[in-house]
Design a protein around this nucleic acid. Structure first.
Lengths: 372, 372
DNA sequence: CCATCTTCCTTCGAAATCGAAGATATGGCG
DNA sequence: CGCCATATCTTCGATTTCGAAGGAAGATGG
C-alpha cells in the first residue's frame, strides 16, 4: 500500500484513471512498470479487472476498479442537532447513508463515543462481511486545528474548546482517523465533482455560514480556520453585535439562524434552514426578500475574496443553497464588482455533490491517509 | 539539466541543500544516487565543491555551490517611471543591480525593446566573460495572464492591454522568458526569506497597492489577477470614484498616489512615495496621520483575507513600507478583528528582501523554467 | 474484406536507483 | 589520548524502473 503502489490505487480510487494506460499517463511511470504493479495489486486482491472500457480509436482498455472487498470507510458529518453517517467503499462510493438526531451540547466525549458506536452499528447492519474497516472520519461544525486534531475556539459548541476530538475518536479504532471542519469536508467532496477546476470556493450556507477553499486541487487548511467568512464586517445601516463580540458580522445578517430569527419576529415560524427554502418556493415574499438580501451580503463579501483568490468556481452548498434567489443574488454582486479577469470564466453554481458532499469529502481525505 | 539532475540543482540553487547528505534528505533519493549525480554535475561544470561546512556532530559536509560560470539571469522590475534591472547568478545572487528611468507610456513595443537592450548592455558591462545568459524576465505593474504572457486590463498602462509582452521580450532571446505581475514577483522573492512560513501575503505599498500570494510555498497566480486588493470597497464617510469606475476603492484612499494627491492639496509637494516616508520620519503630522489612516484601511481589508486564508505571515514591502505607522496601523486592525486561531502565530512585518525583492523573485521563478 | 492506423498492453534487455555495509572524518567524553 | 557516537560520503550487488519493440484488439476507410 506504500509508495508507488499507493499512488496507483489512489488514482483508481479517485476516478482519475480506469486503465493501465491511463495510470501510466497520470502517474508518470512507464507503462511497463504500471503493468507490473497492477498485476501485483490484482494478486493481493486490492484491484479487480472489470470488463472492457470504450475504445478511443484503438484497442479497448481493460477497466480497473478497486475491489469491493478492499475495505470500507466509516464517515460522519456532525451538525448541531443531526449527524449524517455513512459507509463508503475505498473509491468513495456510499454503501449506506443515514441521518440520525444527536446533540453536540452533550459534550465532546459523549458525542464522539456515540459516533463510534453508530459506526459499529452501521458496520454490523450494512458492512459487507469480511471486508475490513480501513479508516474513520468526521466533520465538525467548528474550527479544527489540523496539527493536533483539536477543536479550537468554536463559536457554537460549548464545552468543546480545545478538546482532542481526533484522539477520542481514534481511541475506539486502531486506524487512520480524520477530523475536519464541516465546510472543509464539503469542499473536498465538491472538488471531485469539478474536474478541471483547480481552485474552488465552496460556500456552506446553512444555520451558519462556512466556506472551504480548494487551491490547486488540494484543501487549503491554513491554521484550521481557513475559509472563515462568517465574521466579516458587512455594510449595514443598523448595527448588530455578533456572538463573537464584534459589530455587524456577516453571520449575524445572512446565516440561516439569523434569517430564522427575523422570520420568527415576523410571526413566521421556522425550525430549520430547509423551511426557509420551502417558504421561498411557496412564494412567501418576506422569505424571498430576506434570502435575496442575504445573498447580496454574502456576494459582497465574496467580491473581495474572488479578486484576491481568482477561483475557477464558487460552489454553493448547505441547507439554504437550493433557494434560487440566494445564488442569483450572489452572482449579481460578484459579477458586478469583481475585476473582469477574475470573473471571465468564473462559474457560480449550486452544489453538484448534494447533501452527501461532506461525507464524500471525508472519504476522499481519508483515502489519502489510508493509502499513505 | 532534466529531471532528477534539475531537482538537485534547484535544491542547491534555492539554498535548500548545501551538501550531498542534505540533497539526499530533501530530494528523497538514496544517498548513493545523489553522490553519483553530483559527481556528474561537477563533471559538467554546473556544481562546484567549496570547502567544508560545519559539523553537526560527525564528519563535516563538503559544501556544494552552483558554479559561478553555470549561467546568469537578466531580470527587470518595471515601474511607471523607473525600472530596476539586474543580473543574477543561477542561485539568485545579484551580480549587479541598476535603476534607470523609463516610461511605460511609450508603449509596450518600445518598452520591451528597451529592456532587451538594457539587458544586453548590462551583460556587456557586468556579465562575467564566457558565462552564458540562461533566462530573462521582467515584472509588470499590471495583471499578466499566466497562460499567454499577455497584459490584461491594466488600470494604469494605457496602450498595453492584451499586448503579448512575453512574446515580444522573448523575440530578442532564444531562452526561457518570464513575465509576471510585479507584486507576484515581490512575493516570490520574499518567500525565500521566510523559511518555515508556507503561506504568505506580500503587500506592495507603493504608488499603487498590490499583493502577491504564496500558498504552500508556491506563488498563487489564479487567473493572473490573484492578490488584487486595490478595488475592495472600504468603509468611508466621503465618496470617491476610482479609476475602475466603482465607488470607494481601497486604492483611491490608501495608495501612495492617493496620499500624494491629498498632500498636494494641502500644499505639501511630493514626487514619489518615498517622499512621504521622509515626511513621516521628519514628523510632519499631516503625513503621519494620512499614512496611519491608510494603514488602518488596508488593515481592515486584510482582516477579511487573513480570516479566509490564514497566512503564516503578512509581509509589507514597496516604497511606503518603511513608514513605521503604516505597519503599526495594519497590525492593529488585523489583530483586533481577526479570529484568534488566524492571528495566533501570525507575523506582520516589513520586507526582509528589501528593494530587490522583485528581482530576486524573478530569479527564483526563472530558475524553475531554466532547470525544467 | 483487407490494409492501415490508433490505442492498449506485455516482453525483455539496458539503465537508473536503492540499500546495506563500509570507509572517512569529526566532536565529545572519560 | 583513545574510544565511541554521529554524520558524511562511497562502494557494490540486488532491485526497480525504463523504454524500445512487438503483439493484441479494435476503429477507419477504401
Amino acid at each position: 500500500m506504500r509508495g508507488a503502489q499507493g499512488d496507483l490505487l489512489r488514482l483508481v480510487a479517485a476516478g482519475q484513471a480506469e486503465s493501465r494506460a491511463e495510470l501510466a499517463r497520470m502517474s508518470g511511470l512507464a507503462a511497463s512498470s504500471v503493468s507490473l504493479r497492477v498485476e501485483e495489486l490484482i494478486g493481493t486482491g486490492l484491484l479487480v479487472e472489470e470488463g472492457a472500457g470504450t475504445s478511443r480509436g484503438g484497442r479497448r482498455p481493460r477497466r480497473l476498479r478497486l475491489s469491493p472487498s478492499a475495505g470500507v470507510l466509516a464517515v460522519a458529518d456532525l451538525g448541531a442537532h443531526h449527524a449524517r453517517l455513512g459507509l463508503l467503499d475505498l473509491s468513495g462510493t456510499p454503501l449506506v447513508v443515514e441521518e440520525r438526531p444527536c446533540d453536540i451540547a452533550l459534550g465532546p466525549e459523549a458525542t464522539m463515543d456515540w459516533i463510534a458506536a453508530s459506526f459499529e452499528d452501521l458496520l454490523l447492519r450494512h458492512g459487507p462481511p469480511g471486508v475490513p474497516l480501513r479508516g474513520v472520519g468526521t466533520g465538525i461544525p467548528g474550527p479544527v486545528d489540523p496539527a493536533t486534531g483539536r477543536v479550537v475556539a468554536p463559536s457554537r459548541m460549548p464545552g468543546w474548546n480545545n478538546f482532542p476530538v481526533a484522539e477520542r475518536l481514534g481511541s475506539h479504532f486502531d486506524l487512520p482517523v480524520l477530523v475536519e471542519n464541516d465546510a472543509n469536508l464539503m469542499a473536498a467532496g465538491e472538488a471531485r465533482s469539478w474536474p478541471g477546476r483547480e481552485t474552488l470556493m465552496v460556500l456552506k450556507a446553512g444555520s451558519g455560514i462556512g466556506c472551504g477553499v480548494i487551491v490547486n486541487g488540494a484543501l487549503h487548511r491554513g491554521r484550521g480556520a481557513a475559509g472563515d467568512i462568517s465574521h466579516v464586517r458587512v455594510r449595514s445601516d443598523s448595527s448588530v453585535t455578533c456572538s463573537c463580540g464584534h459589530l455587524d458580522c456577516l453571520e449575524a445578517y445572512a446565516s440561516g439562524a439569523a434569517l430564522m430569527a427575523v422570520l420568527g419576529e415576523q410571526g413566521i415560524a421556522v425550525e430549520r434552514p430547509g423551511d426557509i427554502v420551502a417558504l421561498v418556493e411557496d412564494g412567501v415574499p418576506e422569505a424571498t426578500a430576506l434570502v435575496r438580501n442575504a445573498g447580496r451580503l454574502i456576494g459582497e463579501v465574496l467580491t473581495v475574496l474572488v479578486n484576491f483568490l481568482n477561483p475557477d468556481a464558487i460552489v454553493v452548498g448547505g441547507g439554504l443553497s437550493s433557494a434560487e434567489p440566494l445564488i442569483s443574488a450572489i452572482r449579481a454582486a460578484v459579477y458586478e464588482r469583481c475585476l473582469p479577469l477574475a470573473t471571465r470564466d468564473l462559474e457560480i453554481a449550486a452544489s453538484r455533490s448534494g447533501p452527501d458532499a461532506a461525507l464524500l469529502g471525508a472519504g476522499a481525505l481519508l483515502l489519502d491517509a489510508v493509502l499513505a
